[in-house]
Simulated scan of single mutants.
Amino acid sequence: MKQSDFWDRMNETFGPTYARSVASDHSLGQLGGRTIDQALSEGENAKAVWMAVCRAWPERVPSRLVR
């Protein structure tokens, strides 16, 4: 997954403003306690980060985007 695809999914799921807040403010256990921004900047695969988002917010992510 390209990072641009990742951000498209984040924006669709949370809205553009809240997506940025989620990415910078929430530490995820599945990312080793890192934020989304930290994980991506440290070279974590965008698909792996997206799947962590899907697991952290299952009620929020549209089912068609969980892949």
Score class of each variant (00 low, 15 high):
19 A>N: 11
54 C>S: 13
10 M>N: 09
30 Q>H: 02
63 S>F: 10
27 S>T: 12
47 K>F: 06
62 P>G: 05
42 E>I: 00
16 P>R: 14
52 A>S: 15
23 A>L: 11
37 D>L: 09
45 N>A: 09
63 S>T: 14
18 Y>C: 02
58 P>A: 05
6 F>N: 01
67 R>Y: 06
21 S>F: 12
13 T>F: 03
65 L>W: 13
3 Q>Y: 04
54 C>H: 10
43 G>V: 03
63 S>Q: 14
28 L>R: 05
20 R>L: 15
40 L>I: 14
23 A>Y: 05
7 W>T: 05
22 V>G: 06
46 A>Y: 13
57 W>T: 08
35 T>K: 03
38 Q>M: 07
66 V>L: 08
62 P>Q: 14
44 E>F: 10
18 Y>E: 12
9 R>I: 04
56 A>Y: 02
21 S>A: 14
11 N>L: 01
27 S>P: 03
28 L>G: 14
29 G>D: 15
58 P>N: 10
30 Q>K: 13
38 Q>L: 08
30 Q>N: 14
13 T>V: 11
13 T>N: 12
1 M>W: 08
9 R>Y: 13
37 D>T: 13
44 E>D: 08
2 K>I: 07
26 H>P: 00
8 D>S: 14
58 P>W: 00
7 W>N: 08
32 G>I: 03
26 H>F: 15
39 A>E: 06
24 S>L: 11
6 F>D: 05
56 A>D: 01
20 R>H: 04
42 E>H: 11
3 Q>V: 15
55 R>C: 07
51 M>A: 10
50 W>V: 08
